[in-house]
């Protein structure tokens, strides 16, 4: 099955980088949706099917933490795993994001392999 992915990052170039790396994972990616910040992402989640979310932390309007809190508060999004994508991978930061409901964490920059690993983990894809 092809996974529909939502990429949330305020940098358009970063969104295309992530999209490109996604393409290199060899995973089957369906729709690739993009949002510039949390609020825009919530709007998209309201009208489009998404299988997994990749989000940045530092963003204007609504940052990654607020976004995670909103997603967690919405019952209908419980089944959509969120993977935080950030340059900051200090223990406290990771812990905080996980406590807010993030299911995965990838440090920028990342290889297709590490992204695939994390995605397969949160999507509970078995190898084979």
């Amino acid at each position: 099955m092809a996974y529909d992915v939502l990429i949330v990052d305020d940098s358009p170039a970063m969104r295309s980088f992530i999209g490109r790396v996604l393409g290199l994972t060899g995973m089957e990616i369906g729709e690739r949706l993009e949002a510039g910040h949390g609020r825009e992402a919530l709007e998209i989640l309201g009208r489009s099917w998404v299988d997994v979310i990749l989000t940045d932390i530092n963003m204007p309007v609504m940052n990654g933490e607020e976004f995670l809190a909103h997603v967690a508060a919405r019952g209908d999004l419980k089944a959509v795993p969120v993977v935080v994508v950030s340059t900051d991978s200090t223990g406290t930061r990771v812990e905080r994001m996980m406590s807010l409901g993030a299911k995965g964490y990838v440090k920028k920059p990342f290889s297709p392999e590490s992204l695939r690993e994390e995605l397969e983990r949160v999507l509970e894809v078995s190898h084979g």
């Binding site: 980088f17 060899g26 990342f110």
Partner: peptide
């Protein structure tokens, strides 16, 4: 096909580098 190539291939992609410069 492109699967499994190392990520620094990104730096070889003029489109992405162009995006980077622009931004």
């Amino acid at each position: 096909p492109a699967a499994g190539k190392p990520p620094n291939e990104l730096a070889q992609d003029p489109g992405l580098v162009g995006d980077f410069i622009l931004e």
